[in-house]
Design a binder for these strands. Sequence first.
DNA 1: GGCACTTTGTGCGCGTATTCACAAAGGCTT
DNA 2: AAGCCTTTGTGAATACGCGCACAAAGTGCC
Lengths: 247, 247
Amino acid sequence: MTSRQNRNHRDRADRGIPEATVARLPVYLRALTGLQERGVATVSSEELAAAAGVNSAKLRKDLSHLGSYGTRGVGYEVEYLVYQISRELGLTQDWVVAIIGVGNLGRALAGYGGFASRGFRVAGLLDADEAIVGQEISGMTVEHTDRLEDVIADHGVSIAVIATPAAAAQGVCDRVVAAGVTSVLNFAPVVLSVPEGVDVRKVDLSIELQILAFHEQRKAGGPGDYAPLASGDAPPGATQYVEAVEA
Amino acid sequence: MTSRQNRNHRDRADRGIPEATVARLPVYLRALTGLQERGVATVSSEELAAAAGVNSAKLRKDLSHLGSYGTRGVGYEVEYLVYQISRELGLTQDWVVAIIGVGNLGRALAGYGGFASRGFRVAGLLDADEAIVGQEISGMTVEHTDRLEDVIADHGVSIAVIATPAAAAQGVCDRVVAAGVTSVLNFAPVVLSVPEGVDVRKVDLSIELQILAFHEQRKAGGPGDYAPLASGDAPPGATQYVEAVEA
DNA sequence: GGCACTTTGTGCGCGTATTCACAAAGGCTT
DNA sequence: AAGCCTTTGTGAATACGCGCACAAAGTGCC
């Protein structure tokens, strides 16, 4: 995870592909396109697994969920596997994306090459700040969030990317959901609540760092190296263990 | 998650805190600081679980791994719990971070408020592009990657954030590891290989979108709606199922 | 054509994670 | 102080994911 927040599609009527497998398919796809560029025509599960950083048995089991696309004694045909995974992930069709919130992060996302190359078309950049509205970013003109519903309807947006400040995120989310969007990628540091049937995935930069910090601390000798209180014995309310507000 | 790539710390000598729990602690922390700002002094597992988007039994079990910090019949004292989680995650000490690659994403990261507020101090911005070196970003001057080892040593960097293009990532990674960094947060779309003892976490924007696309497709009626080939019957090598290179 | 070799696809056992459900514990009221 | 009510902490059941190890299947050499 990038830590995540998903309900639904636990239903396992998902045509049976486990969530853990779905999460790895994009990684395999990436490794495969890399091989493809290097002109490799065929790859064994062992090689592909190494390139993707997973166990080869796991790779084979994952692929077996899509059907049997390998040849025993030989391996998998790269090009064909690329197509099958792309199809399974729905990348053979175009997905229309709107990015709401054009701060530093929104700008980075707007210019991210990995979107267009995988069938994701950014159809709108929106922001609530008048100073930003009208700016040209990555060849697109930033529109005001007042026009959110129009943009979604006009371009047939099916995925919303929320890159607003935390305080604005839930409001924006409610609006895009009301406008018919059923998939949301959230970069704001809040837990969004959405109705049944809407998928939310969350990417949180600071959470990833915190997980790293935990392990880093472990390597250095566990928490409370010079901890002022014995575990569980601190006087509640004695000191201000504050944290600043985030952006 | 944000999809991830971790070996080690499976060792379970981790003082016993399960990895899955560690990944959720930052989420609880975020919810708690939100409550704290609103002046809430005490919270029940039910309320906190709702705010964090998890099951309340899971929350209680997670917290029980840190010790017994709740009061039966009452709940948890917000401030105290914030401190305990912060301590467990190692956020009571400062972590020095270097960001390598100052493109759109690197810039966004440099300006991200969520870092500083959680004890992460960005001590260096580095880039290989002469046109970027010397620029002032978020109050810091971008340095040339030639100085990578110096910056790491001088500031005592313990976490490296890699936001370079894919092609440069492994090289940068090797260098930071050689310079003594043992925690890496990777935004480049490649699988990094690192020696035993080094932690790598990966954040991949396009993977998250692809997972959303998968579920979105499911809602619309499964893959191959108008699929040109019956599953498993396509002539291998017949068409070019290409993908563009990513940025 | 048969045999040896390679590699897939998967059955199985194991450990981890999740959830339920309840007994133990503490507070509050009378 | 006794009993009721709330909420924690956790035992036990279930589900899930992972990886080993091997049989089945296909290739290519002789």
